[in-house]
Simulated assay, not measured.
Amino acid sequence: MLQILGKASSINVRKVLWACAELDLPFEREDWGSGFRTTNVPEFVALNPNAMVPVIRDGEFVLWESNSIIRYLAGRYDGEFLYPSDPCERAKCDQWIDWQASELNRAWSYAFLALVRHSPAHQDRQQIDLSCANWATHIAIVDRQLEKTGAFIAGPSFSLADIPIALSINRWFETPLQHGHFPALTAYMERLAPRAGYVEYCRNGTP
Rank of each mutant, 00 (worst) to 15 (best):
D86R: 07
Q123H: 12
A111G: 14
E43W: 00
R76C: 11
Y72P: 00
S102I: 06
W135T: 07
V41M: 00
V53T: 08
T38K: 05
S68F: 02
S102N: 08
A91S: 12
A51Y: 14
E30D: 09
D58A: 14
R37I: 00
W135C: 03
V53N: 02
D86N: 12
E28K: 13
K92Y: 12
G33A: 03
Y72T: 00
H118D: 14
E89S: 03
Q100H: 07
F112N: 03
L115M: 12
G75R: 05
T39G: 03
R117D: 09
L47V: 05
S102M: 11
S102Q: 08
P49R: 13
S66Y: 05
N105Y: 08
C132K: 06
N40A: 13
L115S: 07
S34V: 10
G33I: 06
V53S: 01
D78E: 11
L47I: 03
A136S: 10
F61W: 10
I69M: 04
P49S: 15
Q123K: 12
D129T: 13
P120W: 14
Y83R: 01
A91L: 09
N50G: 09
E103V: 15
T39E: 00
I70W: 12
I69K: 01
S66P: 04
L115C: 07
E28A: 12
L104H: 03
W96L: 02
Y72E: 00
I128N: 09
V45Y: 13
D58W: 12
F36N: 08
R37C: 00
G35M: 09
L73I: 01
A46K: 14
V116C: 02
T38Q: 03
V62P: 01
R106W: 15
C132I: 12
A74I: 01
Q95E: 12
F112R: 10
D31T: 07
R29S: 10
A114K: 00
P54D: 08
A46S: 14
T39V: 00
M52V: 15
I97A: 04
S119N: 12
R125I: 08
A74L: 01
Q126G: 13
V41Q: 07
R29G: 05
L130V: 07
P87V: 09
W64N: 07
L47S: 08
P42L: 09
I97F: 06
A111Q: 03
